Amino acid sequence: MLLRIDGNEAYCYTGGKRFDASLPTVVFVHGAQNDHSVWALQTRYFAHHGYGVLAVDFPGHGRSAGPALTSIEAMSAWLQSLLDAVGVERAMLIGHSMGSLAALETAASAPQRVARLALVGTAYPMRVSEALLDAALHDEARAIDMVNIWSHSTMSPKPSCPAPGFNVIGASRRLMQQVSQRGPDHLFHTDFSVCNAYGNGEAAAAAVRCPTLLLLGSRDMMTPPRAAAGLGKAIAGARTCRIEGSGHALMAEQPDAVLEALYGFARED
């Protein structure tokens, strides 16, 4: 689905069904150097089981035009403009990595608009090493390789993950290459800088009032579970679920477990 947000064309994947604003809405928010496609399995299931789905491409990512956003606060404002554009007052937000910070900030700054909050592969502060920031700025191909090695729990996923012959690391690497080719210069560095600079996480966490789930990979080296402990304690009533055997790329490495956790959370009374 194509929309106009802040004067630019914006794309949202709707899970293979026409978006219906009368249904409970779930917004899926991607991480750095990614796009809507990282949520392929989860979005299709939600869309075919009673939900209106919006899997966003942030500006400068995937099919959305415009310069990349340069702060978590700007990403939060963009998400709120997205809800305005589709006529939705209140939605569940599911964010991965960088997207989890944007979802967190939105739940804090616009609590009336967020019904539930799921933070996947999250951490605060979300620090990025100087070596990775430098590679993202001066040698993006190397940065993509570094991130994909660190984001997966193994170089050789079991053949059934998620289908025989499927190369999980290769698919993630190719997606990042495509996002780089289509997006503005130094997009990876911009995204990492946004994560590194965000400083409102503690205050945002304390302000969240909606049901919240932290979904973490037990073998995540990019955002280790211990790095999310502060958020889990600061968000009132937050629950933490660990996906065993998964790294940072939870949605690709353990797609069924991620779907089960998210769908179960969405269906709770």
Score class of each variant (00 low, 15 high):
3 L>A: 06
6 D>H: 14
10 A>C: 14
17 K>I: 08
20 D>S: 11
26 V>S: 08
26 V>L: 10
27 V>H: 05
29 V>Y: 08
40 A>W: 13
45 Y>A: 12
50 G>I: 09
53 V>D: 01
57 D>K: 03
61 H>V: 07
65 A>Y: 02
69 L>M: 08
74 A>W: 06
76 S>M: 02
79 L>M: 11
94 I>R: 00
95 G>I: 08
102 A>G: 06
107 A>N: 02
111 P>E: 04
113 R>M: 04
114 V>S: 08
122 T>P: 02
125 P>Y: 02
132 L>C: 00
140 E>W: 05
140 E>S: 10
156 S>I: 12
156 S>T: 14
164 P>D: 12
164 P>W: 11
169 I>V: 15
172 S>I: 02
175 L>Y: 03
179 V>Q: 04
183 G>I: 04
198 Y>S: 08
200 N>F: 10
203 A>I: 09
206 A>L: 13
210 C>L: 09
216 L>W: 08
219 R>I: 02
221 M>D: 09
221 M>R: 15
223 T>H: 01
229 A>V: 09
232 G>H: 07
238 A>P: 01
242 R>G: 00
243 I>T: 06
245 G>D: 10
246 S>N: 04
247 G>M: 05
254 Q>S: 15
261 A>Q: 03
263 Y>T: 11
265 F>N: 01
267 R>A: 14
268 E>W: 05
